[in-house]
């Protein structure tokens, strides 16, 4: 029990941010028209590629002799960047098609 309370009090800022971010996410997405479900999902998917920042930090912090960390970090950066660039590009392509026709 004490451990749990410690865990919470030690990370109070993070927990506040976490809870507020959850509500922001919910509010931002509510009442989205069906037409935008796919681009929205794909855009959100691109955003989750923010994990690449962590991958870059892994590499920056890695000991130059720790080959395992460097290799795993390298792969993590590649995969994360594919997620980011591919995600935003494909979202852009989809949205490009949603044009009103001129009559």
């Amino acid at each position: 029990m004490n451990q749990l309370i410690d865990l919470i009090t030690n990370n109070l800022d993070l927990i506040y941010i976490l809870i507020l971010a959850i509500f922001v996410g919910v509010e931002v997405i509510k009442h989205i028209p069906t037409i935008l479900h796919t681009p929205l999902m794909s855009g959100a998917n691109a955003l989750s590629g923010v994990v690449v920042v962590g991958a870059i930090l892994v590499m920056l912090n890695a000991d130059p002799d720790d080959y395992l960390a460097l290799v795993l970090g390298f792969i993590a950066v590649v995969l994360g960047i594919v997620n980011v660039v591919g995600g935003f590009a494909v979202t852009g392509r989809m949205l490009q098609m949603f044009k009103k026709k001129e009559r």
Partner: peptide, 9 residues
């Protein structure tokens, strides 16, 4: 924040 946004959305 980015991750949580995607998660809750």
């Amino acid at each position: 924040v980015g991750g949580i946004l995607v998660g809750s959305a």
